[in-house]
């Protein structure tokens, strides 16, 4: 169990509202994970390439601009294209309830809206990432 969960927290697109991304990044780090924060204005290509380079277990996207359908689907498509479908994709921000099922269907593992306790995100990753490791025989 000394393997550390590695997470990329990313801000895709033009949106500069980074409060949530930073709070989540810190909370995951305080929970013992390795966290890489991309900074602002990342394209889906930049995010996926950073994820591969950093060999992360999960990617968390923070989007408050309403462009979530576009960015999640692009990141997911690129992950699949790069043979990296095993990287867990999750996210949060201002995302209407009615879009959540569509995102889950797309292969997004979880969507955390406003008011989520960071502990819930920690619990989610600590539960799901080891499952993924077990599957891969790690």
């Amino acid at each position: 169990m000394d393997r550390k969960i590695r997470v990329l927290i990313a801000k895709p697109g033009l949106d500069g509202h980074d409060r949530g991304a930073k709070v989540v990044a810190r909370a995951l780090r305080d929970a013992g994970m390795e966290v890489i924060y991309t900074g602002l204005r990342q394209t889906p290509e930049m995010i996926v390439s950073a994820a591969l380079q950093e060999d992360v277990d999960a990617i968390g996207l923070s989007i408050l601009s309403g462009a979530h359908m576009h960015y999640f689907s692009e990141v997911k498509r690129l992950l699949d294209e790069q043979g990296a479908s095993d990287i867990l994709l999750f996210g949060g921000g201002i995302i209407p309830d009615e879009d959540v099922p569509k995102l889950l269907e797309m292969g997004v593992a979880a969507v955390f809206g406003p008011g989520t306790l960071t502990q819930d995100i920690v619990d989610f990753l600590k539960r799901e990432v080891p499952k993924k490791w077990a599957k891969a025989g790690l």
């Binding site: 697109g13 394209t43 408050l64 309403g66």
Partner: peptide, 22 residues
């Protein structure tokens, strides 16, 4: 919207998915 706030026209590649959203 964000493209306008960032000084991009609506048909700029970086505007994709963001036009008229916020």
């Amino acid at each position: 919207d964000l493209p306008t706030l960032m000084g991009y026209d609506s048909d700029h590649p970086l505007s994709k998915g963001e036009v008229g959203k916020c």
